[in-house]
Amino acid sequence: MKMLVLLGFFCLVPWLGSSEYEYVWRDSTTRSCKEIPVDLRLCHGVGYADMLLPNLLDHESMAEVKQQAASWVPLVQRRCHHGTQIFLCALFAPVCMERPVQPCRELCVSVRDACSPIMTAYGFSWPEMFNCSRFPEEEQEMCIDRTTPSTRSASDNNSTCPQCDHDLVLEHMCATEFAFKTKIKETSVDGSDLTVFLQKKKKLVMRRGDLSSDEIKNLELRLINGAKCPCPQLDERRHPYLIMGRRVGQRHLLTGIRRWDKSNQFKNLLKQLKSQKCSAYNPAFK
């Protein structure tokens, strides 16, 4: 169940792009109180029952809120910061008051600093729509502040690289553009990253993406921050692995790796990898 709830992280939707939107908190907007529905998973049970609509991201219908908020549920599940859900729900489902209350800048900065390393691992950056300079400081006006210190960062040296976390192999499925069964030939350090060289032969293609046959044959993958965190799979090269990745500019990033096995759980993973529909995916964190 832990793996399934994480399915869809980075199945990001087009509204995350920063160039088309200007987020201005419009006091003149007519808002109404709505009960937070059970299927608004991001914010149901957050600590209050009713929310304002339109919200602080100008989503005007509950259907739109549900669609847009769903992409952020797995980030909350990662527990990179205690206040992640509080911060996100302050925007997606603001508490029902006479005037909307924004998250404090300090809360935004704290969540960003704790959670952005996870996003960076997959080639994404903190979105402009959550630019912390947009939010007020606590001394300026009433806002929602963080209640506890942040938890450990995903980049801590004692933490397994998120791309290599065995329990999170489904987490990036919708951001995965290609996937293979293959063995690892060698790795090399490149600054804070690792370059992963795959065997040129015997690649079983599970998902091709837009890669040509020559690209598949000579594929080299970048493991972001791989020199700073352990990836046990890269130390054991006798076995074949399910290698997942995607293209970012001229680079190919490794987004997930798991040892190939014959368990029913793994077979179900392969079925989902082949059939998962991710039409909403958009590389929006560029």
Rank of each mutant, 00 (worst) to 15 (best):
K2V: 06
V5G: 15
L6Y: 11
L6K: 14
G8F: 03
L12M: 13
V13M: 15
W15A: 15
S18M: 09
S18E: 11
S19K: 13
S19T: 12
V24I: 10
W25V: 10
S28P: 08
T29V: 07
T29C: 05
T30D: 03
T30C: 02
S32P: 04
C33L: 04
I36C: 01
V38T: 10
L42S: 04
L42D: 00
L42K: 03
A49H: 12
D50R: 14
M51N: 05
L53I: 00
P54S: 02
L56F: 01
D58Q: 09
D58H: 06
S61M: 06
S61A: 10
S61W: 02
M62P: 03
M62T: 00
M62C: 07
K66D: 02
A69T: 02
L75K: 03
R79H: 15
C80K: 09
H81W: 00
H82C: 10
T84F: 03
T84K: 01
F87H: 08
L91K: 08
P94W: 05
V95S: 15
C96N: 09
P103Y: 03
L107N: 13
L107F: 05
C108E: 06
S110T: 09
S110C: 08
V111N: 10
V111R: 07
C115V: 05
C115K: 04
I118P: 09
Y122L: 11
F124I: 07
M129P: 05
F130E: 12
C132M: 05
R134T: 10
P136N: 02
P136K: 04
E138V: 11
E141S: 15
R146V: 00
R146H: 09
T147I: 04
T148C: 11
P149T: 11
P149A: 13
R152E: 14
S153H: 09
S153D: 12
S159E: 15
S159G: 07
D165T: 01
D165L: 00
L168D: 14
L168I: 01
V169C: 15
E171Q: 13
E171M: 14
F178E: 09
K181N: 14
K183G: 15
T187M: 10
V189P: 09
S192C: 08
D193E: 13
D193N: 15
D193K: 06
D193P: 11
L194V: 04
L194K: 00
L194Y: 00
V196S: 05
F197M: 15
L198E: 07
L198S: 06
Q199R: 13
K201L: 03
K202Y: 02
V205E: 15
L211T: 06
S213Y: 06
K217A: 03
N218R: 12
L221T: 02
R222A: 11
L223T: 02
N225V: 02
G226T: 02
P232D: 15
Q233S: 14
G245E: 09
R247M: 09
G249R: 14
Q250L: 08
R251M: 06
H252Q: 07
H252N: 12
L253G: 10
L253P: 08
T255F: 01
I257V: 04
W260L: 15
F266I: 10
F266P: 04
K267Q: 14
K271C: 14
K271A: 14
Q272Y: 08
L273K: 03
S275P: 05
S275M: 12
K277Y: 04
C278L: 01
A284W: 04
